[in-house]
Design a protein around this nucleic acid. Structure first.
Lengths: 112, 112
DNA sequence: CAGCGTTGTGCAAATATGTTATAACGATAG
DNA sequence: CTATCGTTATAACATATTTGCACAACGCTG
């Protein structure tokens, strides 16, 4: 038996950023394309796009700058705001899993 | 903006206990019936039952003792094992939210 | 032995999710 | 100036999953 956890940020109760979106952002940053990023992390382009759209809508700022047409067909890259957001999320996550694992050992480890 | 979290236990990667199931267990304990419990926490009876069944299957022990027929048509109540499980889960959750809220303030509070 | 309210299951409807097709775009090559 | 290319973006379709409803079985009670 293992313990799992998920941390995410919400606006008005609706999720705007979590581990899935973080992975998407990282892939976009690495590959320069929503399409390639989605494939890389095994996500449909549709879902990836709707993630981005709802995030931007709920936060009220652009996170992924995208260009259609042009060299190589276009592409996408993260805005400064998106990178800051990612960084903060990582700080938030930091240490939580370790703490949870420790607690899990305390509670479930010896007794059972 | 708020931070949210979810903690659950898994066996072989498949979830066996989380906040939803905890709420179901509490309602069963209070109402003595899966049916009433499901309605109380806005869950379909089918889903509630499949939760219980998969949990019991994966853990290999009975968690909800149920009787069909008889006084008031039957009913259900938690086994000793289920109550112990709930207690441990609560211990596991304890303090995590407080710690997260504090971290959230640290990271998102002043800067933005 | 009929009535009751529950557990449990089968099936259709509804909803969510995934997949494929296609249009628009604009720099570049020819 | 036109064709090509890979991308963004949307629409239409297909597939899984969830939900809702109906109904049988059960066993205590009056």
């Amino acid at each position: 038996m293992q313990v799992r956890s998920k941390i995410w940020l919400a606006v008005d109760g609706e999720p705007v950023f979590g581990s899935g979106r973080e992975a998407l952002f990282k892939a976009i940053d690495r590959l320069g394309s929503i399409n390639k990023a989605a494939k890389d992390i095994n996500l449909s382009y549709r879902k990836a796009l709707s993630y981005i759209q709802t995030m931007e809508q709920r936060l009220g700022e652009q996170l992924v700058e995208r260009k259609t047409g042009g060299l190589h067909g276009g592409g996408a890259h993260l805005t400064k705001e998106a990178k800051e957001f990612m960084k903060k999320y990582e700080q938030l996550e930091e240490g939580i899993n370790e703490m949870l694992d420790k607690k899990f050992q305390d509670v479930f480890g010896k007794g059972n």
